[in-house]
Design a protein around this nucleic acid. Structure first.
Lengths: 213, 213
DNA sequence: TTGTCCGCCGACCGATGGTTCGGGAATAAT
DNA sequence: ATTATTCCCGAACCATCGGTCGGCGGACAA
């Protein structure tokens, strides 16, 4: 009895990590289970010891990635008290997550969209996860804005429309990611985002020389 | 000699139109040539009389759609002299093109992205078409902005950054389209866009009570 | 050493779908 | 009516892929 024991969770993780890389490069349908197995240096049968279907691999890989990302973001921005600094840190993190020097993440984002919105898409049944991720991002931005208002760093009008502002900001980030994939020009992209954010901050903060008046 | 003649171009068109509908609903890979043939009420073999491969159908369908869209946009905004009205018309048209009451077009947009950016994607070799479409959109917005500046309706600073502003605006529109697919809530989406555009216009135009000063 | 059982594997199966092909239907000229 | 030519088709071919299964190897206990 008890002949041989293996850390199952580690192998599971190996599979999802490998799969995620392939999915982001080649897309879900174009990636075969055989390729995943080869890349993870194991037999196809072994993959099926850990997952019951290709779809399950995808769901697990994406879900894990989203959870990790949200956790990292939380941890990164959690204990910064100044809302403007927190905003800055939020953006720095967004750039790291969407690491645009390597377009993998944006491609993954495109792939997730495709599998979420397409009929019979592999992620269709789990779109609530995407929705929740977005809500969470949104709430983070809203919190920063409201905190800014309460500390008199941001115009009070912003509080009323905090939600809309947050949604629009996130929409912009999604869109610019896609634009970056098209332009294939990283420096231009960086300038673009900087320009946008600079104007964004300019529009919402109370200039120091107006403060306290 | 000369026994039987058929309008080839009409059939070609029938196929691409049908295919485009299916591609936007189910995605490229999930749509089979057999389904396209059935939906277009012809045999699978007939489809191959007009196209040499499934990929060619996709490329043709997407390219045609893009050309048409650009033409319609040109025609719609071409002869409006007032830049602010032109801007308004541009947006109205954008909404019609991206007809958000029917998410088909946004889904198509997602599908195009996927096939353009993914390794071995069906549209990868033709990404210059996407690039050109974007450039054209961009130029239209830039023209409106510069015209606005020269007519003293828009702040002169805008001229210097017209390109960046245009790119960011288009990025936003792409992003909000995806957001709309996630939220599955059309009225909310309309409000979002209105809010953004209202602020955008507010930020660039010279208020009437400041004019001529 | 031997038996047992876990973990691993890749040949195999069935289904699907892109592409081909050979012939049948339709048409018009002779 | 015959024939030449074009158009149309769907059965058949072939490759690929998701998923299964029977068995192999090695580790541990006795």
């Amino acid at each position: 009895m008890s002949p041989k024991f293996i850390d199952k969770s580690e192998k599971t993780r190996e599979i999802t990590k490998t799969a995620l890389r392939l999915f982001s490069r080649k897309g879900y349908t174009a990636t075969s289970v055989g390729q995943i197995a080869d890349s993870a240096c194991m037999g196809k049968g072994t993959v099926y010891e850990y997952f019951s279907s290709k779809e399950e691999i995808f769901i697990r890989a994406i879900s894990d990635w989203i959870m990790e990302t949200l956790d990292r973001l939380d941890e990164m921005t959690g204990q910064i008290p100044d809302p403007l600094h927190r905003f800055e840190s939020f953006f720095k993190m967004m750039r790291e997550i969407f690491n645009f020097k390597d377009p993998g993440t944006v491609k993954l984002f495109v792939e997730i969209n495709q599998q979420t919105f397409t009929e019979n898409g592999a992620f269709k049944k789990h779109r609530h996860i995407i929705k929740e991720m977005r809500s969470k991002f949104c709430r983070m931005v809203e919190d920063i804005l409201l905190d800014g208002v309460s500390k008199k760093l941001v115009w009070p009008e912003v509080a009323r429309e905090a939600h809309k502002i947050a949604v629009n900001l996130l929409a912009y980030l999604d869109g610019i990611g896609i634009h970056y994939l098209i332009s294939e020009n990283y420096p231009e992209y960086e300038e673009q985002v900087d320009f946008y954010i600079k104007n964004f901050i300019n529009a919402i903060i109370i200039k120091p020389d107006h403060r306290g008046s």
